[in-house]
Write a protein that binds this DNA or RNA. Structure first.
Length: 225
DNA sequence: ATCTCGATAGTCT
DNA sequence: GACTATCGAGATC
């Protein structure tokens, strides 16, 4: 079990306010931990608790926006609170939340989530055989099996995009509007103890490798790598 | 558990 | 033409 059940109490979940995204990008990356990523699709709703983030600021050589605006990175320069979904390595998508004021090219990469709702749908999107899906989703009571499947489904930026069915079509989505793709805060943040936030070096980059702008929660197993 | 390696295509130089 | 904010399979320990 996670340290706190984000959906406990069934309180209405509402999107985070755009003003939150407008703030300091490193601060937003910390703030997005434990928030809920929601994708309402025709086939059903998918929800994940954000377990791992990375901050990319405009003055950072590892940031796509470091050399200015291009057609690809233009969403980063748009208003905060929108999605920046890009394609990389010829096969993967990565999902970011645009941060900072309009005109500043910054974003937070979502690297891993803990599946909360829509396990079956995620498994299907990830290409697991139907029989295996039945077997695995039937044994989620077992904490070990639960974590194992969680990391298989959403334990990495490319994996979670596939599980959530996020591709080019999701690029530019306003994350503050419920109905399709959005990020919700904890129904009642004050009711839960906030675990300690850990910061480490970011993963999979070559430039500015020493900046400690990858964030996780202490003792949270639902992370990548 | 930890590693190497290949696949694959959009973007920028 | 070179590079990538990656993943999974297969090898090896």
């Amino acid at each position: 079990m996670s340290t706190c059940d984000p959906l406990e109490g069934g309180a209405a979940l509402t999107p985070l306010d755009r003003e939150l995204y407008r703030g300091d990008t490193v601060e937003v990356a910390r703030r997005l931990l434990n928030c809920l990523l929601v994708h309402e699709t025709d086939a059903g709703t998918i929800v994940g608790r954000i377990a791992e983030t990375e901050a990319y600021t405009q003055d950072d050589p590892a940031c796509h926006a470091f050399r200015g605006m291009t057609r690809r990175n233009s969403p980063m320069f748009g208003p905060p609170g929108h999605a920046y979904v890009y394609f990389t390595y010829g096969m993967h998508y990565c999902f970011n939340a645009v941060t900072g004021p309009e005109g500043v090219g910054e974003a937070v990469l979502i690297r891993a989530v803990e599946p909360i709702e829509g396990w079956e749908l995620m498994s299907r999107h990830r290409g697991l055989p139907e029989e295996e899906i039945k077997r695995l989703t039937a044994s989620l009571e077992d904490p070990v099996k639960r974590v194992r499947l969680a990391r298989k489904l959403c334990g990495g930026p490319g994996k979670l995009c596939q599980a959530f069915d996020l591709g080019g079509a999701a690029n530019g989505t306003d994350l503050t509007c419920p109905g399709s793709l959005w990020i919700g805060g904890m129904p009642n943040p004050e009711a839960f103890p906030v675990p300690k936030i850990c910061s480490t070096r970011r993963i999979g980059i070559r430039l500015n490798v020493d900046a400690p702008w990858r964030f996780t929660l202490r003792d949270d197993p639902y992370t990548s790598r």
